[in-house]
């Protein structure tokens, strides 16, 4: 699912140094699974931050609280009564969680403590790899299960480009070229014809915020 990484300490301390009492809100969902923003990481980050400010003789109190999933209102209710006593919030949830917390508490400044990176897979303990960028129009059906948006540095829908060198990408020589992988995979499965047709590139212009309403539940929201 969603993978993230803790921001550099300097960036977090820079954003909260003006405040006296800070609450660090963790998330028990995806970022807790990728060992980035769960309760354990909240406690660890708080210790680090407290040490940082103590060494510089700055008087800031940082406390931590972890909720199940900040992206759901139901789990934010328990925060309602503890939040008023804090000057500002930092959140170790993903971007969606931070924004939802900010929306619920309009008078509190909220700072992210995590860089939300991608939707990815678990390779090993603490090692994750990007697999999806949530573009909203999945094409891996005809590219043989290799996503050209995330795996190709240029996001080409009709590849490869001219920069392939010994099956590697010209942007980063460590990465395999996605289109070579796509070609090999389709050839093995005898479905080369899938990529012979030219596909129109995704319309990246209209990046408006997307709302998802499932087909079965459309009748509920059509009245409005």
């Amino acid at each position: 699912m969603v993978k993230g990484k803790v921001k550099p300490l300097e960036e977090i301390t820079e954003s909260i140094k003006k405040y006296k009492k800070v609450l660090n809100i963790g998330c028990g969902g995806c970022v807790s699974v990728c060992l980035a923003g769960g309760q354990r990481e909240v406690i660890a980050l708080n210790e680090e931050l407290n040490l940082f400010f103590k060494n510089r003789n700055i008087d800031i109190l940082i406390e931590g609280y972890t909720v199940e999933r900040p992206c759901n209102n139901q789990y934010l209710i328990e925060l309602d009564e503890i939040i008023p006593s804090y000057d500002c919030l930092i959140s170790m949830a993903c971007g969606a969680g931070v924004q939802h917390i900010a929306e619920r508490y309009p008078d509190k400044p909220v700072f992210p403590a995590l860089d939300t990176i991608a939707i990815g897979i678990d390779r090993d303990v603490g090692l994750y790899e990007e697999r999806c960028r949530a573009c909203g129009e999945c094409v891996i059906g005809y590219t043989g299960g290799v996503c050209p948006v995330t795996r190709c540095a240029k996001g080409l829908y009709n590849g490869p480009c001219g920069g392939v060198l010994k099956d590697k990408c010209e942007v980063n020589a460590d990465n395999y070229c996605a289109w070579v992988m796509i070609y090999n995979r389709l050839k093995e499965q005898d479905r080369i014809e899938d990529i012979i047709n030219v596909r129109p590139a995704t319309d990246w212009r209209n990046q408006v915020q997307r709302t998802i309403v499932q087909k079965k539940y459309e009748h509920r929201y059509n009245k409005r």
Binding site: E137, V208, T211, I212, E218, H219
Partner: peptide, 20 residues
Amino acid sequence: AFSKPSYVQHTRGQPVNKKL
């Protein structure tokens, strides 16, 4: 209250289910 255009756009021009 969600913005209707973005929802319609995301369904990629499919007709929206009007029946109950």
